[in-house]
């Protein structure tokens, strides 16, 4: 029995992009939760001071922080040097006023969303912005790290982190900037999830499962 295929299948997200996406999502979730604890330790004190509650939570924060830092660096690299140019192609749309209008109109229920790459121009610019926020939160995080852990990596980063600390006007400022940036991720994540679900339903393209499987199933048009 032969079936006529009704949909086309296209690989849009490489395995690397997918793995990093989910690792990043996981580390952001963990960092936000542990970060809020560090900012305002909300758990009740343990029965015994042998249980280092703050210590362990800080440890988790540091581990996930390094995961996020590594992914942020790799993703910057992949964006520019990946053999697959599906991300870079979007740059054409960013430069075109027409594409911007098409995308913004499609968000208010007028017309299709035609794009050269995988992202629309507004989406692309948002992702670039959040990538730079990630870079900044990683840098401030490393400066804070170097001020707590003085050996090894912390020691290696000491001089540069002292310089950055001075540019930011002291350690307290570094810490507070680090805190503010958290909110960019929280608000981004909410909008991001909604837009992913919504555009999957509306345009029957790039629905949420493609960041899991990597494939986009769509009718020809």
């Amino acid at each position: 029995m032969e079936h006529e295929a009704t949909h086309k299948r296209q690989l849009i997200f490489t395995p690397a992009i997918r793995i990093f996406h989910w690792l990043r999502a996981l580390s952001i979730l963990a960092l936000v939760i542990t970060g809020f604890y560090i900012s305002w330790p909300f758990l009740v004190a343990p029965e015994s001071s042998d249980v280092l509650v703050q210590g362990w939570i800080r440890f988790a924060h540091v581990v996930f922080g390094f995961v996020l830092t590594a992914i942020t660096l790799v993703r910057f690299y992949l964006f520019f040097f990946s053999r697959n140019d599906i991300e870079r192609r979007s740059f054409k749309d960013v430069m075109s006023v027409k594409s911007w209008i098409t995308q913004l109109k499609s968000y208010v229920w007028m017309g299709h969303l035609n794009k050269a790459g995988i992202y629309g121009p507004l989406q692309f610019v948002t992702y670039v912005a959040i990538s730079f926020v990630a870079l900044l939160i990683c840098i401030t995080g490393l400066v804070l790290y170097a001020n707590v852990y003085h050996e090894g990596l912390g020691g290696m980063l000491w001089d540069s982190s002292a310089w950055i600390m001075m540019q930011m006007g002291g350690l307290a400022n570094v810490r507070i900037i680090h805190h503010y940036l958290t909110w960019a991720f929280i608000i981004f994540a909410v909008i991001h999830v909604y837009m992913a679900v919504w555009s999957g339903i509306r345009f029957k393209h790039n629905s949420v499962d493609s960041i899991v499987s990597g494939y986009d199933y769509h009718k020809d048009h």
């Binding site: 900012s39 305002w40 006007g169 002291g170 350690l171 307290a172 400022n173 810490r175 507070i176 805190h179």
Partner: peptide, 21 residues
Amino acid sequence: GCSEPNFWDDMADFEKPLGRQ
């Protein structure tokens, strides 16, 4: 935090952690 630059502004409020500034 009195030995840090700009402490009067940066370390306020003195009886709240920085996250609650």
